[in-house]
Write a protein that binds this DNA or RNA. Structure first.
Lengths: 211, 211
DNA sequence: GTTAGCATGTAAGGAGTTACATGATTTT
DNA sequence: AAAATCATGTAACTCCTTACATGCTAAC
């Protein structure tokens, strides 16, 4: 989870740890937050594995041997790894969180992969919807109102997600027919954008005293 | 998480581990599944802590020293612990999952606690909604369409939840005025119900090869 | 000059999963 | 008699959090 998110962000632009965490808790933060206690060890591990490297070109003068900012960039292996993870089709690749992260970096994937992921996710969500429908019908009048409400609200949520996915899929098909065969269909973001603002929000959703 | 769910189920009826897990993955399974690898160790820990005990009245004849079913029931301490957890008001008690579990056992709480929990959750959800709105407005046209879609869908989800919570809260207020001051407002489930069917669904949402 | 935010890390631990191991009972 | 499902458990591991520790830099 953290790994793919880091790869996705660094694939757009080199960054240091602190900034990564800020961006992470913006985009993904809507449904996921990470702490430094997992971020830095993960960066170290990824560096050891050769997925990322220090970006010497942005090297702040390390004046006096001080510990300065460490800006990371993707290596070639890192870029390959990112594409592999994005294209992953194993069961479990369509979990709520895994799907969310992949969607957040969708514009960095080709149209074929996008379509495959969206359809895989839709299949998953539809199965869940059917199971929930069946259960709710079977058990409705035997359950207390709170359990019914919980299940009803849950069911409506997956129904909404299924519709939403279908719209995204339709829109992918339209783009294809309209002749953008396999490159990113996303609106490119203007170049003069200050990156800092892109994702960063008000912070993590739950704890306000992360560190 | 697992602890409160176990307490909630055992508070309704004594049960053995295997059945607990089945029921767990029905009600809660909509948003959460547990494996035996966490269930049994947790049961042992809870027994050591005196929260649950073996229900001797249902003792299957352990013929020949065989390992038979172990039916657990709540102790007095377990019942107290359950009420404490349900009434918990600390930050973090209103997380997605924690709230979900509490709601699933709502009919076992008094009206005052129910209202407090619902309002706490609503506050949390509304804060999140506002943060998401602000971010989406600020960043809308600079983001690629997938990120925008992800955030838009997320925003609509929390908007829906906020409305849903408000309806539940209104309904609690109505019940109060209608003179059911503090006992469970839930429709009591008929006595002849086979418990087994209450929650149990088709199984866990993701992996099909749990064990 | 002090508070807030930038920046990087470590140590301990929590809450679960996966994979394995074992055997009884029920259904086909 | 084979297959499914019931039933209980352990060992290793994953992935993350919390709390702590340290110091720099900008703003008020």
């Amino acid at each position: 989870m953290l790994e793919i998110a880091i790869l996705g962000l660094l694939n757009e632009q080199p960054m240091h740890g602190y900034e990564l965490r800020k961006q992470l808790n913006g985009t993904l933060g809507t449904f996921r937050a990470f702490s430094y206690g997992s971020l830095y060890p993960t960066l170290r591990r990824m560096k050891e594995q050769g997925l990322i490297a220090e970006d010497e070109s942005v090297l702040e003068p390390p004046l006096g041997g001080r510990r300065g900012k460490v800006v990371y960039k993707l290596t070639v292996e890192g870029k390959e790894r990112f594409q592999t993870l994005l294209a992953d089709d194993s069961p479990g690749a369509y979990d709520d969180e895994r799907f969310g992260v992949r969607l957040a970096f969708f514009s960095q994937t080709d149209a074929t992969t996008r379509l495959r992921i969206l359809e895989g996710r839709r299949r998953r969500v539809e199965e869940r919807r059917e199971r929930m429908r069946t259960r709710l019908e079977r058990t409705r009048e035997r359950l207390d109102r709170y359990t019914v409400e919980l299940q009803r609200h849950g069911l409506e949520s997956v129904e909404r997600e299924a519709r939403w996915l279908s719209e995204l899929i339709d829109s992918e098909h339209r783009d294809r027919r309209a002749g953008m065969p396999d490159e990113a269909a996303s609106t490119e973001r203007p170049a003069e954008l200050e990156q800092d603002d892109r994702f960063s929000g008000t912070g993590p959703q739950d704890s306000d005293t992360y560190q």
